[in-house]
Write a protein that binds this DNA or RNA. Sequence first.
DNA 1: AGGCACAGGTAAAGGTTCGGTAAAGGTGAC
DNA 2: GTCACCTTTACCGAACCTTTACCTGTGCCT
Lengths: 224, 224
Amino acid sequence: MRILVVEDDPSISAPLQEGLMREGFDVEVASTGAAALAAAPADLVLLDLGLPDLGGNVVCQRLRARSSVPIIVVSARGEEIDRVMLLELGADDYVVKPFGFRELVARIRAVTRRMSGPEPTPAAMEFVVGPLRIDRRTRMVVFDGSLVDLTPKEFDLLVFLASDVGGVRGRDQLIQAVWDENWWGSTKTLDVHIASLRKKLRPELIETVRSVGYRLVDLTVGDA
Amino acid sequence: MRILVVEDDPSISAPLQEGLMREGFDVEVASTGAAALAAAPADLVLLDLGLPDLGGNVVCQRLRARSSVPIIVVSARGEEIDRVMLLELGADDYVVKPFGFRELVARIRAVTRRMSGPEPTPAAMEFVVGPLRIDRRTRMVVFDGSLVDLTPKEFDLLVFLASDVGGVRGRDQLIQAVWDENWWGSTKTLDVHIASLRKKLRPELIETVRSVGYRLVDLTVGDA
DNA sequence: AGGCACAGGTAAAGGTTCGGTAAAGGTGAC
DNA sequence: GTCACCTTTACCGAACCTTTACCTGTGCCT
């Protein structure tokens, strides 16, 4: 998820960038309207209306003219913005400076959710691998016909493994997928969680690929 | 437009049938509860609560359990009926014997209009999940046959949970759905409301999914 | 063969985080 | 003012995660 932050004041854009990155976004900063228009396409644009070169509203309209990226407009207190103006600009939402960071993140998520269509079931929600059924919607796992109670980490791990049955997922890959991106704990932790998964399901289900990672085995045929 | 008249007294059902047919309805008569439940599906049911075999209320609930036909309940003078009872039964309207024929027809038309017409929201106005019935129009909730008094926040929460039974709703998601989008209070508030919902309904109804959110459980089957 | 280093398995022991709950304070409606 | 509702706070217990320590198995080197 790439966010383009268009903001000329570094004292705002710098912490913003850092914070958003910590939230898991990929962030690029443009400090002028021209730079913004020249930047690589993003998944969402955060646009300050008060820019040094082009007016923010012009940038907004040009961006909108060539793509349908969600745009959140940032305005200084006092600059009035109403729903009509938002529409004219083609923006999707706005925040007023100074804004709380949590508010901003929530709006970003709200907008992107609104964009990506009606929520609940995109169908790739359920994996079935032999006697194993994983439902991402309900976060429930059934193995051999009985419900298995997994902790969050276990569940996430399993889902990631199940997303490529038979394929090997590297240890680093697993850690990146399940843990916070900048988590530097002992790599042992992974083993422990794999162990408890094996215990709760069946040891053979998760195969170790030495010095690489793990693989989820398809035990469809009852060859035990 | 087929109407099923459930009435054991022929001196009432006969003229009723004739009159309704003259009004352009297709009418079928059932004189017992069992017959009513066995009858072909209708577009509207006119149900006398005083039946020889099953109690009218049982018939009503069973009908409702398997379809969303509009139901108009007929009660003898003296049997008290109020809006709460209507809801508990799952009925849409009622008339008291002896009723004027013109009044009855008017109510039939009113109910069917309400059902099919461009009333506020098309479907999902009412959720039924096992012993739980949620009516968004009246904002009333019936659980196990009795009316439950919920505060606004509790109701909204429940509705959002009920909109995806079995699915997990994230804490953020719940907060966004129920609270104003720029409300940034302690996330604890959510727990408190969940707690009071659990207390008013049944603790098992709302399940915690640790570090993710909550889930509304379908306790249709009495599997203890 | 024996020794060694490395990768992973496993159990148990902290430590932390998360959610439950009661109670108190705040706020708006009537 | 009173009442219902919402929000916050504080504290608790349990679930969960992480680390530690020790062990096994494998492959490589001498």
